[in-house]
Design a protein around this nucleic acid. Structure first.
Length: 319
DNA sequence: AAGCTCATCAACCGCCTCGAC
DNA sequence: TGTCGAGGCGGTTGATGAGCT
């Protein structure tokens, strides 16, 4: 019992799209919008499979696509996102405005893989190629997590913490912030060479439901074994951890609106005060901390990338 | 100039998930 | 609760062009 074909294959064109087909598809979508891909070909007078139309539109014809070479910043962002998400190309694409999953996937396979290899980094694990521990890292995962948890609180206190909050799914056209807001909390230990990221349940705000399932299976654990992706539900850290009270005002989670740099918006849910939260501060140890918000101005995003501008909210839109 | 190899990327295929019924 | 259809995703393929011999 095979699956019924998605379209009538006998009367559909395959292969490269012609200019005329492109024009037909563009004009149809301009007139009627996206949606119902199965019936679109017939309605648009195209001898194509609905999936093919969708792919052509998403990967090539969409007006908001950014054409041209990837920038160095995009490269680094892709690498970081890949280390976090693995081959979740659509999720990675969701963080890169104007780029498609297919484009990023191709770019990864043709450029970035080689780039990482030339740096001596395994593109699959993001670990040094000669890192013998990488192969059995998976087995030592629990042990490592325990070690991380046993870190002295002084080390934790010296860590630079980034807390960013954003909606899991935001319509590019909608100005209203969704009820559901998710929080990503990444903690980068500044006193060690390793980076540990503590991601609470809201980590999955950048993932769709099905990917939560994938990650619960541990696929990401194998790729990024130093990431603790276990699901936990807890109050905001600055509320229940003494160490973090020292950073109150710096570490507080930003609502999605504030993360876009719109602190004074009526949609703000966190009451972020720009004046009280300058970009950075000094903790009790005298260590300078950097507030890695996405407010306007230079800063660092939750991936540790330098940002000079407001997040493009389109990048947060899930496809 | 011809032939070959390699890189690139658009497009396809099959599977999965989700919502409707 | 199970089935079905549609949309979406990731892996793979194949056409094309560039570079080299």
């Amino acid at each position: 019992m095979g699956r019924s074909p998605c379209c009538e294959k006998a009367h559909t064109n395959k292969g490269a799209w012609t200019k005329e087909e492109d024009d037909r598809l563009i004009s149809y979508i301009r007139a009627h919008g996206e949606g119902c891909w199965r019936s679109l070909p017939k309605a648009a007078g195209l001898l194509r499979c609905g999936k093919s139309c969708r792919l052509r539109w998403i990967n090539y014809l969409r007006p908001d696509l950014k054409r041209g070479n990837f920038t160095e910043e995009e490269d680094e962002l892709i690498i970081k996102l890949h280390s976090l998400l693995g081959n979740k190309w659509s999720l990675i694409a969701g963080r890169l405005p104007g780029r498609t999953d297919n484009e990023i996937k191709n770019y990864w396979n043709t450029h970035i893989r080689r780039k990482l290899l030339s740096r001596g980094i395994d593109p699959a694990t993001h670990r040094p190629l000669n890192d013998s521990s990488a192969s059995h890292h998976h087995h030592n995962n629990q042990e490592q997590q325990q070690q991380q948890q046993q870190q002295p609180s002084s080390l934790v206190a010296a860590a630079t913490t980034t807390t960013i909050s954003f909606a899991s799914s935001v319509s590019a056209s909608a100005s209203a912030v969704k009820q559901e807001q998710d929080t990503i909390t990444t903690t980068t230990a500044t006193t060690t060479t390793t980076t540990s990221a503590t991601c609470n349940a809201n980590m999955f705000g950048i993932m769709e439901k099905k990917n939560k399932k994938d990650y619960s299976k541990g696929s990401s654990m194998e790729r990024c074994p130093d990431l603790n992706l276990e699901l936990t539900i807890s109050p905001p850290r600055h509320l229940d951890e003494p160490d973090h009270q020292k950073f109150s005002g710096i570490e507080r989670a930003l609502c999605f609106v504030c993360s876009l740099g719109l602190q004074n918006s009526k949609d703000c849910r966190c009451g972020f005060d720009t004046n009280a939260n300058a970009n950075g501060g000094t903790n009790s140890n005298g260590t300078t901390t950097t507030t890695t918000t996405t407010a306007t101005g230079a800063g660092y995003d939750f991936l540790g990338l330098k940002t000079g501008s407001v997040w493009d909210y389109r990048s947060l839109e899930m496809k």
